[in-house]
């Protein structure tokens, strides 16, 4: 499913808004999550999951092609953990053992 299919589906279920309005809401929704992460914040959507930023330290690496030594700059990477509800829904009938 793509973003436009998502917008299509949501607008078929929510009649209070036009398709265009739904599109603006969906875009603003993901934009606000992206902005929060870009500012180093975390995003928690109950039942869906949480997004966090992890800091990766710089390290000495090697260009696999040329074999030359290079320094890999420190960077921030996004990290996602699925929420309890979705974990259970994609695994029906299994008991949750992790915390």
């Amino acid at each position: 499913m793509t973003k436009s299919e998502l917008i299509e589906k949501v607008s078929s279920r929510v009649t209070a808004f036009s398709r265009r309005d739904i599109e603006i809401i969906v875009d603003t929704l993901f934009q606000s999550m992206a902005d929060s992460l870009a500012n180093g914040g975390k995003v928690e959507i109950r039942g869906f999951g949480s997004f966090k930023i992890k800091e990766r330290e710089g390290r000495q690496g090697r260009n696999p092609k040329s074999g030359e030594n290079i320094f890999i700059q420190p960077k921030r990477v996004p990290f996602f953990k699925a929420g309890k509800e979705i974990r259970e829904r994609i695994n029906p009938g299994s008991s949750e053992e992790e915390a």
Partner: peptide, 20 residues
């Protein structure tokens, strides 16, 4: 609407489909 967005994504994933 926002509730419905997340619910739609979850339902799609539940069917084994990916959401891009």
């Amino acid at each position: 609407v926002i509730e419905e967005v997340f619910e739609t994504i979850k339902a799609e994933l539940e069917q084994g489909e990916k959401v891009k």
